[in-house]
């Protein structure tokens, strides 16, 4: 039943470009999809290990920059007489590089940041993202600084001479984002249902207790960060080759906040949460536009909703809906003593 529902949803999503002949709406859906992937990756850290990382946009941006730079090629002087140059690489390979480099940065930053917890952890993650933004802004030789990386090539897949798929147009990009999104979903699902996933959830619930029964705390936190950073990097790579321009503002704190709002509203620590939250906040700006609200209204709405969700839906929409559903079926059948927080663990 549940499987069937998932497949029906997927079929519906896959059919969208076939009947929707409004390119602009498709563009909005693609952008929302990219942010949903990023939010899903943040959920792994925020929802499953319970670490509020507010530097997540760093991995998204690193993925975008690494992938763009690999596909464009670059030459930098690391020392006055030592130059490193990289020729342009195919886009699929670049995107893979972006994912891996973001994962690697996740490992490095995770190793360093998990020395501290709580407020310190939050601030150190914010600082990492900000330092990386300033590097992107000032290392002009590599990143073009505020001039942005321009004319980033789009993805082409195929066998030379036989056939080629080009991801220039919107429907193709829509399917690409959908495919990557499904892959990320499956990976996260398998991970949280594995031994490692149970260890992570144990950490979230009670770190000292988990450590005392032999869970290697740092190891699992770093593992989660690597996977999470790699996925955020993949989302960044998708973004770079779809929008085809990347500037240091991809590292702005506000994008991390957007991802956090998506996860918290949808329901952290649930598989569907970031998707529901991402869909709401990905499409909300366009709905507000249609109502002819000025752009600031969008952010004010974000801010107010964030506060309201914390007060009235602290677990997020998905657990609330699930409780409501179980509450209803409980009346008809046997009571279902399910807790939102343990739901994902099973």
């Amino acid at each position: 039943m549940k499987q069937g529902l998932t497949i029906a949803w997927l079929l519906f999503l896959a059919s969208v470009p076939l009947w929707l002949n409004n390119l602009y709406v498709l563009h909005v859906l693609i952008m929302a999809g990219i942010f949903i992937i990023a939010a899903m990756s943040l959920n792994l850290l925020l929802g499953y290990t319970g670490q509020l990382s507010l530097g997540h946009v760093a991995f998204f941006g690193i993925g975008a920059y690494a992938s763009s730079l690999a596909s464009l090629g670059f030459a930098v002087h690391l020392l006055p007489d030592w130059q490193v140059s990289v020729d342009p690489k195919p886009v699929w390979f670049s995107m893979l590089c972006g994912t891996l480099i973001a994962g690697l940065c996740g490992w490095a930053i995770g190793r360093l940041s998990f020395k501290v917890r709580g407020a310190y952890f939050v601030i150190v993650t914010v600082s990492f993202a900000e330092v990386i933004r300033l590097v992107a802004l000032n290392w002009v030789e590599l990143t073009q600084g505020p001039m942005a990386l321009n004319n980033i090539p789009y993805l082409r897949l195929g066998i030379p001479g036989l056939f080629e798929l080009s991801f220039l147009r919107k429907p193709a990009n829509y399917y690409l984002v959908l495919a990557v999104g499904v892959i990320c979903y499956v990976v996260i699902r398998r991970l949280v249902h594995s031994r490692a996933g149970r260890a992570m959830i144990a950490l979230r619930e009670n770190e000292p207790l988990a450590a005392s029964v032999g869970v290697d705390v740092t190891r699992y936190l770093v593992l989660a960060t690597i996977v999470s950073a790699g996925m955020a990097g993949a989302a960044g790579a998708l973004y770079a080759h779809y929008v085809r321009i990347v500037d240091p503002d991809v590292f702005l704190f506000i994008y991390t906040v957007t991802m956090v709002i998506m996860v918290v509203t949808g329901g952290k620590g649930t598989l569907a949460g970031p998707i529901v939250g991402g869909a709401i906040f990905g499409l909300l700006p366009e709905t507000l536009r249609a109502l002819e609200a000025p752009p600031e209204v969008q952010w004010v709405t974000y801010g107010v909703l964030m506060v309201l969700v914390v007060y009235f839906l602290p677990d997020g929409i998905v657990p609330a809906l699930r409780n409501w559903w179980h509450g209803r079926s409980a009346v008809a059948a046997a009571p279902a003593p399910e807790q939102a927080s343990t739901e994902a663990a099973r």
């Binding site: 602009y24 321009n150 991809v250």
Partner: peptide, 13 residues
């Protein structure tokens, strides 16, 4: 610059 691209997209599309 990224916003500029998105305005062009909006205006044209």
């Amino acid at each position: 610059p990224t916003e500029a691209v998105s305005t062009a997209e909006k205006l044209i599309v």
